[in-house]
Amino acid sequence: MNLARQTVLVGLILSAAIVLDLALGEGWTIRGIRPDLTLAALVPIALRFGAGAGSGWGLMTGLILGAFGPIALTSIAVSRVVAGWTVGLLNLRVFRDHVLVTAGAGMIGSLIADIGQYMIVPLGDPKPFLVLAVGRSAYTAALVVPMSLFIRRVFDS
C-alpha cells in the first residue's frame, strides 16, 4: 500500500473514531467511566506505524478534540502527541499482534493521555481523577483489541 493511500485511510479511520467519540461516547459510559474511543483507534495506528506517525496523528486528534472543548486545546493536543509517540516507540520492539500487548499499550496510552492532560490543567481532586483515569484506561484497552484487529485487516489486505 502506498503512503498516500495509507495516510488517507488512517485519516478516515481516526476521523470516524473522533465523530463516534464526540457524538456517541456518552452512551458508552459504564459506572461513570467513558471510554476514549479516539485513543482506542490511535493506539493500534501508533503501534503499527511507529512513534513519528503516532505523534503526528496524536496531534491531529488532539486538535480536533480540543476544538470541541472550551479552553483545554493545549493540554489535549500535547497529551495526545506524547501518548501517540510513547505507544509508537513500542513498534517493532514488542510482539504487537499479541492481544495482551495490544491491550497493555492501550492502557499505557490512555493513562499517559489522561495524566498528561491533568498535569497541564489540573481539574478537581487528584484521587477521584486517578480512579477515573485507571478505569478509563482499562475500558479503552478492551476496545483497543477489536480496533487493532480491524486495522490489521484493513492494512494487511
Binding site: G50, A51, G52, S55, G56, G58, L59, G62, L63, G66, P70, I71, L73, T74, S75, A77, V78, V81, V82, W85, G88, L89
Partner: peptide, 25 residues
C-alpha cells in the same frame, strides 16, 4: 534523533496552536 525531532515538532505545534486558541478565546 528523527523520532525525537518529530516529537518536538508536534509538541511545538500543539503548544503554539494552543496558545493561539487561548488568546483568541
Amino acid at each position: 534523533r528523527r523520532r525525537v525531532r518529530i516529537l518536538l515538532l508536534c509538541l511545538a505545534l500543539a503548544i503554539g496552536l494552543g496558545a493561539w486558541h487561548r488568546s483568541a478565546v
